[in-house]
Amino acid sequence: MSSLLEVQRRMAEAVMAPLTRQEGMRQRAADGRPMAKEAAAYIKPNPRLESFERLEIYNRQYWFRVLDSLAEDFPGVQAILGAPRFRELSVRYISDCPSTSFTLRNLGGKLSGWLEEHPEFLGAQPDLVRDMVRLEWAVIEAFDAAERAPLSAEQLENAENPHLALQPHVRLLELSHPVDDLLLAVRKRKSARKLPARQLVQTGRQKTYLAVHRADYSVHYKRLEAGEFHVLQEIHRASPLSEALEQAFAGSALPETEQAQKIQQWFALWMSLGWFCQV
């Protein structure tokens, strides 16, 4: 008799092994063992199904579930790469980084880092894909991150040495393409088809600073000026406010009065969006 742990390890290995192109279970395990023999070692056949076929039901279910989940979370990446290439990427990524969380919500959390080690999956426009992965993961995080009580204008003014923090749902992104527009276009299409090459080429390189945030329980993307982005980033890093402001206009030719005006405008906007909370 095998131990429960041994059965679970063997079954999990079989269930999580990639499918064939015909979406069936592979005839051989990664180490070359015949899967029919492996399945028969712990699963009973019945009059209609061999052990292999019974195990195959779980193998197929697993991959359909995780591939659907990843495709749902990264429609923009799929639209850039096209469904077949996205599927190849997904199978390899999930094989290397299977879920280690009780929720499938976290399945794509390592995709950005994994792609850095596997640039062969980035396709013809690697930086565009990199940017889209980062944006789509930021959307997932912003969707259900915490929201603390926003700081009021009075709290901000009266605090002698304000320790500001950004709301946990605010994500700051420095991107090399305007993928926010591209993602909106993808979502409007409601289709997993690859985006037309013309549209992808049109999404040329353009330094883009974004805040992905939540308002009224919906996720929004807000374009930021470079200086604005740097101030928010320094605040996020818990740098003192004076240092953050200095950073924003380092090397800037903008007169000091105009710098002050800009800072005022930025803070007024951020406060209206409720982006600040206390540390």
Binding site: L5, R9, A12, M16, Y58, Y62, V66, P98, S99, S101
Partner: peptide
């Protein structure tokens, strides 16, 4: 098993 989730009811 071993920290990996199948997200299935096995």
């Amino acid at each position: 098993v071993d920290g990996r989730y199948t997200h299935d009811l096995l």
